[in-house]
Nucleic acid binder design. Structure first.
Lengths: 201, 201
DNA sequence: ATAGTTCCGGAAAGAGATTCCGCATACGAC
DNA sequence: GTCGTATGCGGAATCTCTTTCCGGAACTAT
């Protein structure tokens, strides 16, 4: 009780940040998983991933006890990358171009990542949070691009960021035997529809 | 050459139709698989299915060498059942009611069968033929219902069978964190929209 | 440098998928 | 009916991948 550290015991102990080797391994695992997932598929043997990452299996299971944890982490990291691309594109291009380029990037993500659609439809509750995560991360990113493009007069905002995201996501959800470029074209159409002035609707 | 059966060797030999016990087992397996898939999920252990079907594992693997073969067969058989329901409903109900009831049945199929959406998005080429199969089987079925309902003046055909099928299928594709009745409501809305006369659009 | 954690690797155990083959059963010919 | 043969059956054995576990290595704070 009179122990002079007692005041600190109560305080939320900052949980000494993860060891550097641990963080490095997690990084390697995510990178390897991303590669293997897009190569072999999300059901690829764990060994494949750990070998590519250069770690033991134990390490994989310590950081990602469930396979779904790994998949979720990979997808979230890709969503993050997508979100990060927004400011970068905004800095390098005219607002309208930046918007188009970003949507193209997002489309590519949704269209090519089989794992994403599969995860969503797997029925595994572990993935329930993903749509929300996507919305939360990408909503603001798109919103800023949209706002900038509207402000510069290049487009007219006839749609909210949220609706646009959903529309793109659903349009691009890959279907077997569907022209793989179908989604991209639909989105292009959508964006053209946003451009102001030219078409006399 | 002068062998008196030589004429027959060339002819496609009718491959003596499958033994009855084999057909019975296949039937049991499909029935069991349907039950287990909707209970435990499409990734349920094979033993679960064979036990319920009352056959050995070997029998499962003989008739369905790949798991995707089983899944595909189950889905196709449900599609068939859906198609078969059309004439039955048409015989028992007014055309408009029959149409509504059939769409309800189709909706239930798409919405509840996680396996269906999962299969479509799995990326496994084994399932590439499914959308086509669905269209081919269900297209004509819906078309006849639609035609009857139009003829009786209960609805106005503002949409093709194909478009309606796709719309329903996409609307009902289950998404995590989405009101599970959302799809059904959307479809109801769609059908209401087809009813003639009442709303003064 | 040293004590105290945290983390690592990979062997071992477990779970399920898939194969294999001797035996059983149905079919067709007579 | 009965016989010969093709076909199908069951389930033990095998194989593959998953998941656990723990002795020791590596990192951090002092």
């Amino acid at each position: 009780m009179s122990d002079d550290t007692s005041d600190f015991v109560v305080r939320e102990r900052a949980p000494r940040r993860k060891r550097t080797d641990a963080r490095r391994n997690i990084e390697s695992l995510l990178e390897a998983a991303k590669t293997v997932f897009s190569t072999v598929g999300v059901d690829a043997p764990a060994k494949e991933i750990t070998d590519l990452a250069g770690v033991g299996v134990g390490t994989l299971y310590r950081h990602f006890p469930q396979r779904s944890d790994l998949i979720k982490a990979v997808i979230e990291r890709e969503i993050d990358a997508c979100a990060d691309a927004a400011p970068a594109l905004a800095a390098e291009h005219e607002p309208g171009v930046a918007l188009a380029k970003w949507l193209d990037r997002f489309t590519a993500f949704v269209a090519t990542k089989r794992g994403f659609a599969a995860a969503l439809h797997s029925g595994d509750p572990a993935f329930d949070g993903l749509p929300g995560y996507l919305m939360q991360k990408l909503g603001p990113a798109l919103e800023s691009l949209l706002k900038a493009a509207t402000a510069s007069g290049e487009i007219q905002a006839r749609i909210t960021a949220q609706d646009l995201l959903y529309a793109v996501a659903k349009l691009c959800a890959p279907m077997p035997n569907e022209d793989p470029d179908y989604g991209r074209r639909m989105v292009a159409l959508l964006v053209d529809g946003l451009r102001s002035g030219e078409s006399p609707h």
